[in-house]
Amino acid sequence: MNIFRLAGDMTHLLSVLVLLLKIHTIKSCAGISLKTQELYAVVFATRYLDIFTSYISPYNTMMKLIFLGSSFSIVWYMRYHKIVRRSYDKDQDTFRPYILMLPCLILALLINEKFTFKEISTSFFLFVMWTFSLYLEAVAILPQLVMLQRTRNIDNLTGQYVFLLGAYRALYILNWIYRYFTEEHFVHWITWISGLVQTLLYADFFYYYFQSWKNNVKLQLPA
């Protein structure tokens, strides 16, 4: 564990807590994309399939449970909570998740660390699901970014949520650089490239977020 990865995990945790805080306290999910939340639930469900078979550390298991629990409860709130669901603007959240999930699944079958299609085994299934979750996580924010461009006034908590979500993966990139130079044979091209793509997708959001912070004006993304 290094400082970049710990900071990344804490930033990721904070992003989830900010969103849960918004939804749980003011009972509103205005401006939040349910599609992105559902994609994140799929990301964690496919990423942590091994939560009961492979034990790494109490920290690792605890964080996995927190991410699984929070992502599914956010989806539950937005779908079924009688007050929260009223503030969900489904007309603005029109991104079709399947146009993201299918290519990620096909890509995971073609490009993963195993490359051997012949041994259809449990570990191959785990590899494909894990790789799928990496690719899906890289693009899961797209429905949310599209929705931000449509909703004119982005409230602070939503802006902070997206900012923290992007920052966590940027910190992970620093973690990968650090581990590459400090650990033998630490090479994970698939993780690195999808993590880089993921962070680059936030580039314009980061720019406008920084501008709004610097000029102390309301965050607005150009349509």
Binding site: R5, D9, H12, R47, D50, T53, S54, I56, S57, N60, M63, K64, F67, N112, E113, K114, T122, S123, L126, F127, W130, T131, Y172, N175, H188, T191
Partner: peptide, 10 residues
Amino acid sequence: PLQQPMHDEL
């Protein structure tokens, strides 16, 4: 045990 793709990261 199953060979784990997911290294120790979340």
